[in-house]
């Protein structure tokens, strides 16, 4: 339900912004998982979220910025029955999103990448959307429905 531009269903949200350094991969997944844990997810759900975030943040660092350093932003929001997470970079962008999402496709085989990042995100989350523009950046939006959270989280405070 949206009233006057404010999403009334949203229970909580957060934003994290950090440098595209690989040491921040574990920082991001642990922080977002801790935030998601207030939905009382199962261990399986929380580890799915953790893995998917790790993939998206790694993509931003390796592919978005390549050898440069920039900012990666992770936005997360809690709704009564779902967890929404968006990982964005202001890097090089993806030329062919459909190709990038193919299992085993990698633009960097020399780095021994498995090409399974998007496949993992797709499988571990319920929805995956990729928005990208050349030289403007990439945003990956993922949704996970948390079965256990319905009726558990208070709407006030």
């Amino acid at each position: 339900m949206i009233q006057g531009g404010i999403d009334m269903d949203k229970i909580n949200e957060m934003r994290l912004r950090f440098l595209s350094k690989s040491s921040n991969e574990s920082f991001a997944r642990v922080t977002i998982a801790a935030f998601a844990s207030q939905m009382d997810p199962t261990l399986g759900e929380i580890s799915d979220i953790k893995t998917a975030i790790s993939e998206a943040v790694t993509n931003a660092i390796i592919h978005g910025y390549e050898d440069k350093t920039g900012y990666v932003e992770v936005y997360a929001a809690i709704y009564p029955n779902k967890f929404v997470v968006e990982v964005s970079d202001e890097g090089v962008g993806i030329d062919d999103i459909e190709k990038a999402r193919q299992p085993l496709y990698t633009s960097k085989p020399e780095l021994e990448r498995s090409g399974m990042g998007f496949t993992v995100m797709e499988t571990f989350m319920d929805e995956l959307k990729v928005i990208s523009a050349i030289n403007q950046g990439t945003k990956v939006r993922m949704v996970k429905y948390i079965r256990s959270s319905i009726n558990k989280i208070g709407r006030s405070e």
């Binding site: 993939e55 498995s114 990042g117 993992v120």
Partner: peptide, 13 residues
């Protein structure tokens, strides 16, 4: 404790 697709790359190699 944790492995993602970067680990897959290491194993496949």
């Amino acid at each position: 404790k944790f492995m993602d697709s970067s680990g897959l790359g290491v194993l496949l190699g």
